[in-house]
Amino acid sequence: MSITPAVQFDLHRRMVRIRLFEEAAGRLAEAAKLPGFLHLYVGEEAVASGICGALNDDDHITSTHRGHGHLVAKGGDFNRMMAELMGKSTGYCKGKGGSMHISDLSLGMLGANGIVGAGSPIAVGAAFANKYRGRGQVAVAFFGDGATNIGAFHEAANMACALHLPIVFACENNEYGEFTPRDKTMAITDIVDRAAGYGMPGVIVDGMDVIAVHEAALEAVAKARAGGGPSLIEAKTYRFYNHHGVQNLGLKYRSDDEVAKWKERDPIFTLEDRMIENKVATRQRFDDIWAELRNDIETAIKFAEDSPLPTSDQVLVDVYSANGGN
């Protein structure tokens, strides 16, 4: 049950892929090359990576408006992601969904979601289907602290527990709902205190420590897969960039000191330091990984830039079902 070097490298790779994709997306947004909003996942990489690293390809996840990290961690394709962000026809949603609707059903990624709290009921539906089919698949609902104040989350958690479904509720508690600190919107500090109210266990992990998140995910996913029902994992984490975009937009809702303190606990660098200390990796090996993945990002940007925009005759394609919804 110990976390082998191969698993450590796998978790590291997932995190670096997220970091590089998001930083590239941020630069493109600043250069006005991306239409629409952009919510960057930088800082929270350990959560998506630690949890998706415990899943199989045919397990399901639902995501949030800050959803790139979840798809990347599940194995998303850089080219199709970057093309979608640029609104190109080669993108995941043929350029018509953009950042907040990105999905890949072949990877069990059931979609980012622009509506806060809306992903959890979808994950419950997937978990219900998985239980019905009986192939041992698990669903994970990613959501933020703010989403737990939304009715849809309560209904989802309640139904998942009532039906004893194979699901993990993964809360990314980054302490802010958009620009509002958590303590202005709820009277409790730990989201996990809500779990018992539905009848499921809930645990807190350090969301800046991918090993800690992964250890919790292994337990919760194994429990769900074995018919043990839902769990809630609350990962205490932090987003390094603003709610949306890269710049602060002049909204000073977090102190520089607070942001700097969280950045000291960068999940990628702390894992690298520990792996080097344990003589599992060298700095050179990590430099090579970063260089290889940077190259993938550059390729994806070029792919997206060179791809065509969707043509006007595609506006209604894939929007309405031609055969009555079946």
Binding site: T189, D190, V192, P201, V203, I204, E219
Partner: peptide
């Protein structure tokens, strides 16, 4: 201690969850 009684042992054992309340 606000952090006591909430760690991962609750996933695999029937350990008590101690809420803030």
């Amino acid at each position: 201690n606000p952090n006591a009684g909430k760690d991962i042992r609750r996933l695999v054992t029937p350990a008590t969850h101690t809420s803030d309340v």
